[in-house]
């Protein structure tokens, strides 16, 4: 992909960044809805988690695509950030960034790095044990184990705090990023206003929803 001439130009990179971001947004929505079921229906959560963890299409087609998507997104994020910094070799003695742009829009790399570190922890907490369980130790399928694994993780006040902190940065990332991606792909028409409201609503509901789920399990078990 990166060898095609179209990805060489600034606009192509910008569009690729937006598409990978939007892809991660769809993944995030699915993840959010599954986690949400853990709050009110243990069995439903177990069923869905079991399905996601054992359906061959999801495991061997969707999961690698998702991992590539995450890799592409943050590597491209670093590449662009590096290039953008290099575009102003001598900085200003005084630069009033807050006068004309939001904190979240100016610090996507910081919110991105927090989310990336969180992804590291999250993989260590859930994904690696799950891979070991299924493919290394090859333990028997136990479709009711997911809920208990989830609850056990949120026992620790430290882990719960780190999760909540990271979700707040996810909120900052999406507050700018989701709407920014519409602009990047060139959307600007009579639906844009409505779409932007949806974008802001998503940026609030999903991260704060995750915070709610984490706190719910921390305080309820």
């Amino acid at each position: 992909m990166s060898n095609s001439p179209i990805l060489k130009s600034s606009i192509a990179k910008k569009i690729a960044m937006a598409l990978s971001g939007l892809f991660l947004v769809t993944f995030l929505s699915i993840h959010f809805f599954i986690n949400l079921t853990s709050v009110f229906n243990e069995d439903l959560f177990n069923t869905l988690a079991h399905f996601m963890g054992n359906n061959p299409l999801i495991q061997f087609a969707m999961q690698p695509v998702l991992i590539l998507g995450v890799l592409f997104h943050f590597i491209m994020g670093f590449v662009l950030d590096f290039k953008n910094r290099a575009s102003r070799p001598i900085g200003y003695a005084k630069y009033n960034g807050a006068a004309n742009a939001s904190w979240s829009s100016r610090n996507m790399i910081i919110s991105g790095i927090v989310v990336l570190s969180f992804l590291g922890l999250h993989f260590y907490d859930f994904w690696i044990p799950e891979m070991v369980y299924k493919y290394v130790e090859v333990k028997p399928i136990a479709s009711e184990r997911y809920f208990h694994e989830l609850v056990a993780k949120f026992n620790s006040p430290i882990r719960t705090s780190i999760y909540c902190f990271s979700f707040f940065f996810l909120f900052l990332h999406l507050w700018h990023g989701f709407n920014s991606s519409f602009q990047s792909v060139g959307m600007n028409n009579k639906y844009s206003k409505t779409l932007h409201k949806v974008g802001y609503a998503f940026a609030v509901i999903v991260p704060f929803g995750f915070i709610f789920i984490a706190l719910f399990h921390h305080f309820n078990h």
């Binding site: 600034s10 662009l80 290039k83 290099a86 742009a101 939001s102 829009s105 100016r106 700018h176 990047s184």
Partner: peptide, 13 residues
């Protein structure tokens, strides 16, 4: 791009 300008991230500044 050849002139060395940076990449837009839609900050709106």
């Amino acid at each position: 791009d050849a002139e060395g300008f940076g990449n837009c991230t839609n900050t709106g500044a």
